[in-house]
């Protein structure tokens, strides 16, 4: 019985230490990079119906356009502070495509994020109106994506 207890204790201790080792191996900066990329993937995912209507590959549907824009606003309403923590750039880990220059004061990251939020609200207001109004608002929203992707996104070799 004592042996059994010892084995049980050993197993518990081993799993605890394994858990601790596992916790230590999670790099908080990599978590940020992963979360930020997930955020952008979600924005792209919910932009798809609006893009398809804009492109003409799907007929304009006011209800569907509004629903998509609502989801985009839900995303841009998330607190962005943690997602764009300094030091989570490509110089830190190559899984990120964000160049360090994005965190220079001149890049005005906060201004760019504010523009993303504002244009998403304008898109929400415009989405259900008519196709032309939605298209104009979507173009402004897209411009806020390009504002970062033009100068601050690493171009991966293909």
């Amino acid at each position: 019985m004592r042996i059994n207890k010892t084995i049980a204790l050993g197993t518990i201790l081993a799993s605890l230490s394994l858990g601790a080792a596992h916790a230590q191996s999670v790099d908080p900066k990599l978590v940020v990079i992963d979360a930020r990329q997930s955020f952008m993937s979600l924005v792209a995912f919910y932009s798809a119906p609006l893009g398809a209507m804009d492109k003409g590959s799907m007929p304009y549907d006011a209800a569907a356009a509004s629903a998509a824009a609502n989801q985009i606003v839900a995303l841009t309403s998330l607190d962005q502070t943690g997602l764009w923590e300094a030091g989570t750039d490509r110089a830190y880990d190559e899984s990120s495509l964000a160049l360090s220059a994005l965190w220079e004061p001149t890049a005005d990251l906060n201004g760019k994020l504010a523009a993303l939020r504002e244009t998403s609200l304008a898109l929400q207001a415009a989405a259900g109106t008519d196709l032309a109004t939605m298209q104009t608002a979507l173009a402004s929203f897209n411009d806020t994506c390009k504002a970062c992707h033009g100068d601050f996104k690493f171009k991966p070799p293909k």
């Binding site: 932009s47 798809a48 893009g51 492109k55 897209n142 994506c145 390009k146 992707h149 033009g150």
Partner: peptide, 13 residues
């Protein structure tokens, strides 16, 4: 026209 790729990523560079 839009800078959006078919999977709605944004044009870069």
């Amino acid at each position: 026209r839009s800078g959006s790729t078919p999977d709605y990523d944004s044009v870069g560079g």
